[in-house]
């Protein structure tokens, strides 16, 4: 028996353009594009990729959202689950295209909800979630 790696089918449009323009360079694409390929790009459904970081004061979530207008993004933090949602309609001539996505990630406990802030720059959304006092590292002096 042979195991053959399953190649995700590409949408017709993108494979046509790859034939036209591809120079054979390896493609590293975000995981989200797999859903586009499976459901067809018309479904307009993908999950944005996210990085989670921490330093002594904050947890940080970084989302890559190229081309997303900040006004269409909704952020919600509840029970240590951070949810990002966006729905956008663009009208071009007589065509209306809708893009929407939603992603929920779990963040560590102990975030000061009132002080969460978010910033969008060059297609990258950074959410800063300050740690509650009890979670911060503390220097303990030895007497």
């Amino acid at each position: 028996m042979k195991l053959i790696r399953y190649a995700y089918p590409q949408s017709q449009a993108s494979s046509a353009f790859n034939r036209l323009f591809d120079l054979g360079a390896p493609t590293i694409e975000r995981f989200g594009s797999i859903f586009d390929d499976l459901l067809g790009a018309e479904a307009g459904f993908h999950q944005p990729a996210v990085d989670l970081y921490e330093d002594d004061q904050n947890f940080y979530a970084r989302f890559e959202l190229p081309g997303v207008n900040r006004d269409t993004v909704d952020l919600e933090l509840e029970n240590a689950v951070l949810t990002i949602r966006s729905q956008e309609e663009t009208k071009e001539k007589s065509e209306v295209s809708r893009t929407s996505f939603e992603r929920s990630i779990s963040v560590p406990d102990g975030v000061e909800l009132e002080k969460v802030s978010a910033e969008m720059k060059d297609g990258i959304l950074t959410v800063a979630m300050p740690k509650a006092e009890a979670r911060k590292p503390r220097q303990i002096s030895i007497n």
């Binding site: 990085d51 970081y53 921490e54 330093d55 970084r62 890559e64």
Partner: peptide
């Protein structure tokens, strides 16, 4: 042009950096 600041420790990484 926007890099992850020094001192941030990754907890989970999905994004590519190149």
């Amino acid at each position: 042009t926007s890099q992850v600041p020094e001192g941030w420790r990754p907890l989970r990484r999905e994004l590519t950096t190149g």
